[in-house]
Computed example of a mutant assay.
Amino acid sequence: MPVFQAKTFRRATTASSSLGERIGAAYRATLPKHPFLLFGLPFVMIIVAGSFALTPAAALRYERYDRKVKQLSQDEAMSLGLKGPDGEEGIKRNPRRRVIGDEREEYYRLMAKDLDNWEQKRVQRFEGEPDGKL
């Protein structure tokens, strides 16, 4: 029976072997010796760089959404009470009822209400808004 050599087989470098193949072979040969340096560190660096790259994209997405939500026409702003008839900005708050006194008085006033007897009323919808009825 023939005796096998202890030396592992390596293909002879020829002109046909490209630079990429030689770099790949060197990488595969040194990977078991330094796994974190050659695999873990590049992986962690890609994750961190991706986080920094995606942060502005996410911020842009939320800014566009905020701009879309904040766009109100002048008529809508007038109907919602956000602008006065002369076009001045700012919300004018006219509360229906002020809380007078301390928290205990307000608590007892709310506790005196009869919460068991109530009637459900539908909210008046705007024109063109679906009311949920089938």
Rank of each mutant, 00 (worst) to 15 (best):
Q5H: 07
Q5I: 00
Q5S: 11
A6H: 05
A6G: 08
K7F: 03
K7A: 11
F9G: 05
R10K: 15
A12V: 13
T13C: 10
T13M: 10
T14I: 13
S16Q: 15
S18G: 12
L19Q: 11
G20C: 05
G20I: 07
E21N: 11
R22T: 05
R22D: 02
I23C: 07
G24K: 03
G24F: 04
Y27T: 02
Y27N: 00
Y27C: 03
Y27E: 01
Y27Q: 02
Y27I: 12
R28E: 13
R28K: 14
A29H: 15
H34M: 06
H34Y: 12
P35H: 00
F36N: 05
L37Y: 10
L38W: 01
F39T: 04
F39P: 00
L41Y: 14
L41V: 07
L41W: 07
F43D: 03
V44E: 04
I46A: 11
I46H: 09
I46Q: 14
I46L: 12
I47A: 09
I47T: 09
I47K: 06
V48W: 10
V48P: 00
V48F: 11
A49C: 06
A49R: 04
A49F: 04
A49K: 02
A49E: 01
G50F: 14
S51R: 07
S51I: 14
S51N: 08
F52I: 12
F52L: 13
A53P: 01
L54W: 07
L54K: 04
L54I: 09
P56R: 01
P56A: 00
A57N: 09
A58T: 03
A58F: 09
A59D: 01
A59Q: 04
R61V: 03
E63G: 01
E63W: 09
E63V: 02
Y65W: 10
D66T: 08
D66L: 07
D66R: 04
R67P: 00
R67S: 00
K68N: 13
K68Y: 14
K68F: 11
Q71E: 13
L72C: 06
S73P: 01
Q74Y: 15
D75L: 05
D75C: 02
D75S: 14
E76V: 08
M78R: 13
L80N: 09
L80Q: 09
G81W: 02
G81P: 01
K83L: 10
K83S: 01
G84D: 15
G84E: 09
P85C: 04
D86T: 11
G87T: 09
G87C: 14
E88C: 06
G90Y: 03
I91M: 10
K92E: 06
R93L: 13
P95I: 02
P95N: 10
P95D: 13
P95M: 09
R96N: 08
R97H: 11
R98F: 14
V99T: 08
I100V: 15
I100L: 12
G101P: 01
G101F: 03
D102P: 00
E103Q: 07
E103T: 03
E105C: 05
Y107N: 05
Y107P: 01
Y108V: 05
Y108G: 00
R109H: 05
M111Y: 14
A112E: 15
